[in-house]
Design a protein around this nucleic acid. Sequence first.
DNA 1: CCCTGTGAAGTGTTTCACAGCA
DNA 2: TGCTGTGAAACACTTCACAGGG
Lengths: 254, 254
Amino acid sequence: MATGRNHRPATRSRGIPEATVARLPLYLRALTALSERSVPTVSSEELAAAAGVNSAKLRKDFSYLGSYGTRGVGYDVEYLVYQISRELGLTQDWPVAIVGIGNLGAALANYGGFASRGFRVAALIDADPAMAGTPVAGIPVQHADDLDRIISENGVSIGVITTPPGAAQQVCDRLVAAGVTSILNFAPTVLSVPDGVDVRKVDLSIELQILAFHEQRKAGEEGVDTAPDPAAPPVRATTGRKGPDGDMPAVMPA
Amino acid sequence: MATGRNHRPATRSRGIPEATVARLPLYLRALTALSERSVPTVSSEELAAAAGVNSAKLRKDFSYLGSYGTRGVGYDVEYLVYQISRELGLTQDWPVAIVGIGNLGAALANYGGFASRGFRVAALIDADPAMAGTPVAGIPVQHADDLDRIISENGVSIGVITTPPGAAQQVCDRLVAAGVTSILNFAPTVLSVPDGVDVRKVDLSIELQILAFHEQRKAGEEGVDTAPDPAAPPVRATTGRKGPDGDMPAVMPA
DNA sequence: CCCTGTGAAGTGTTTCACAGCA
DNA sequence: TGCTGTGAAACACTTCACAGGG
């Protein structure tokens, strides 16, 4: 996550751990699927499997919300759907504005799952005057000059940034000034925001790089599993710098 | 994260903490920007600010890679760029296949930052025969029937899934069968994969729901900061179920 | 004297294992 | 008996604070 609010240093009481909050949407999705299949109750084991976590973790997570299960039986699906929805704030409607209607912004606007449960694309905003008025996913694009008005008129408190990286911080500042207090950033930039504003980021290239890291390990791992300590690492001639492996090449790779 | 590999239970030795791995791309990005501005060295404080973390964390992170800094001075930007790139496996080329060329898949294919450092879109795959041959971002879309061949011929080990949720698991299975061992999943589905396969997910609606959770708290927080224990929570009449607040409504909200 | 590198302390998260209730 | 709810142990991650090298 970027700079931003530090979610209250857990003053005890109503503090649900961040890790738990991040899993609630997963449980909710699994429960919604069960609900659609009219399954009345579910055990922690079954629900955990559907959500891709282990059952102890799930039970601990639910224990932070209250005692919503029945010993010997499991959880009432409908009841739990409601409780988690309420906890996540999805029983109300959240108007969202997307700023930057390029390929990605348009794709998000068209994304069906967006509207699911509580979220509504209230406005599309772009800096290109040529786009103003053009409908994307049935919603007319508005010009960035009117950002402030658009945000307040629609009561938007959640903004999605899909601009090029160079514009992201400026857009962020304007959104915050207009009253937005939660931002989902798709631009590959670190956003700085005042206290009280939440930023979450979605970053394709970071995810790929993390995968590449593990992928590389897998390749090197083949047969060399419990390898004995490799020979002492090469040390750079000029300075005393040392690392576990690999020295600086004469020519940097492009 | 979905089901998947458990990244070696930290057998000590060369084990870089997962949290550190997830930040390396952030450092790399900040360093690349400095490098482009021809900045020769940077202190942990400066670099941390640019990456949006605190300096103690950054120094600790770097300490897992080796001793790449100079006391009293800081870090050599070029040298560090190289070391982190190498650690992340970005000194080699990773051919990536995108499966599911709808709005999102096309947007990702067009996304410039994709090709940056080590990644190359090697193939676009879709199940719609009508799309076969159509170029997207200059790359012709191929039919899903040939998935297996496409993956092996291009030596793809990283797959990106941008299909509708219903198709995701099946596509995942086929990718894995074809030799893919890292998957980036954009579909809102829990994927199950065999051991040794990594899955990371990017999920818009989960991120929005997490933001909504905090957003809701902010709204309720106004002036009620150190509120004394609220009155005993209402208890559901029929059963002994109890939660911190809010009972089941007569009619579920749509 | 400045800034890195790192033990040690602190905090958060996961897992274990079982008491207790339906 | 079966499954939830939860203390307590184990583990992971972050922050502190300072020794020590350039």
